[in-house]
Design a binder for these strands. Structure first.
Lengths: 239, 239
DNA sequence: CGTCGGGTTGAGTCCATTCAACTTCGGTGG
DNA sequence: CCACCGAAGTTGAATGGACTCAACCCGACG
């Protein structure tokens, strides 16, 4: 049941059976959310952290003028609010972008892990560090890449992340985001978002229909995006 | 000597004397850098992490076309590459923006802390989590705020962060960034950066000369920025 | 059959960029 | 001592990218 979590943490370093057992033991109940529902809401002080088993979610903030900005996309195996274990109060919301099945881990249990299982603690810490690395890459994309390159980069990133938890199908993956939602990822207007997608389609590197993205020319897509997966740290080594 | 680190970690939860001693014990040599030098270079695999004692530094990435984007600014008391303790290889560089004095902590020593001092480990983890929270705020600013609001937000953030490590002087602080470097923070051209600064000056909320920023109207500046310091987590509570 | 949410396209406006000129100021060497 | 130089800041004008407003298409669904 926690396969995607094992895959996620296990990409960076080997997980022992004892550690898998500790993780399993830390989990309590499962829960389902429908698309558009908040998994976690801004300002709350959760007493547990939420792991996505199935579905797609996103962190977001809303401004006074109603503008919304997503700050990350979360895939199966991601602990969407592991940071709340120490940050305590949520400074942003987390919304389900598709129907989501999740399982939660009480903070009290996570605390025991930090007291008794240093290696596993480092792997959980690492998980939040990769999160930060992804944020930095997004900042670079927003600040200095062309909008087309930004979108290309996002597609590369999502493909690699989804592949690592076995949610791709050949060179395709399911991306349940409307263009309006995508615009809130890249920080664009809906109209312009549509044109940027059109541009990528036109050069023939991807096809995009029915919420399914297919990469037609991985090499060229990577080139447009200047995508270098180093930041995702998908290398097993002792941590 | 580590006062700023104690101030930095201590804003979130009380640090015991034993923990301070552990931190002191983890440090080895000091080092000086001049403005423009890399503290840490992209692609390297540091065996120690670097703490800023004095000066300002920044994380950055460079694109093929030569464009540079800063992804964070680091002030005294910040562990600029604590994430490299677990991430292992640097996916970005870190440059000194002013002359910097730093002190380094061997990763082997940090590892011992994670094995033996769970509470201190959580505080170090938390430090990297606040980093992530700042990144998210930057993403929101880049995506959905006006350029003026973005700059205002940056000024608010820096003021609060510098104040917490006692590097402000009344409502003023020293900001050793040229407008070209600032442009690489906000993702703007130099010319437009100049105009955005001009706009903030014109409404009279700040003055900015000789690399010194003075906040003339804190309330109004916060309003323009929609600045809410929650994300900086400057609340002492058990972690 | 009509409606609604999402996607697509066109036109006009505004914002940010580039290119270029000019200023100020501190430093350096004749 | 002052003339020159380079780095940083400031300003103007023209180009192009991104936004808004608006219309229209289309397939799902009642």
């Amino acid at each position: 049941m926690l396969e995607s979590l094992y895959l996620n943490l296990g990409q960076h370093d080997a997980l022992s059976d004892a550690e898998k057992a500790l993780l399993t033991g830390a989990m309590s109940f499962e829960k389902d959310f429908s698309a558009g529902q908040d998994l976690v809401s801004e300002g709350s002080r959760p007493t547990y952290s939420t792991l996505i088993l199935e579905g797609l979610a996103a962190r977001y903030k809303v401004l006074e003028d109603g503008g919304r900005q997503f700050t990350s996309l979360q895939v199966p195996g991601d602990f969407v609010d592991l940071h709340a274990f120490l940050l305590k109060t949520m400074d942003h919301g987390i919304v389900a972008l598709s129907p989501c099945r999740v399982i939660v881990a009480e903070h009290s249990r996570l605390r025991v892990i930090t007291e008794e299982a240093p290696h596993l603690t480092r792997l959980l810490w690492l998980d939040t560090l990769v999160d930060g690395a992804i944020h930095r890459e997004w900042i670079v994309a927003m600040g200095r890449r062309s909008k087309t390159a930004h979108l290309a980069h996002l597609v590369c990133e999502l493909f690699v992340r989804l592949q690592s938890v076995q949610r791709t199908n050949g060179m395709s993956f399911h991306l349940p985001l409307s263009q309006a939602e995508l615009a809130d990822v890249l920080g664009l207007s809906v109209v312009h978002m549509n044109r940027v997608i059109g541009a990528l389609r036109k050069v023939g590197v991807i096809s995009w229909a029915n919420y399914t993205v297919t990469i037609l020319d991985w090499h060229r897509l990577q080139e447009i995006a200047e995508f270098d997966p180093t930041y995702l740290n998908m290398v097993q080594e002792p941590r």
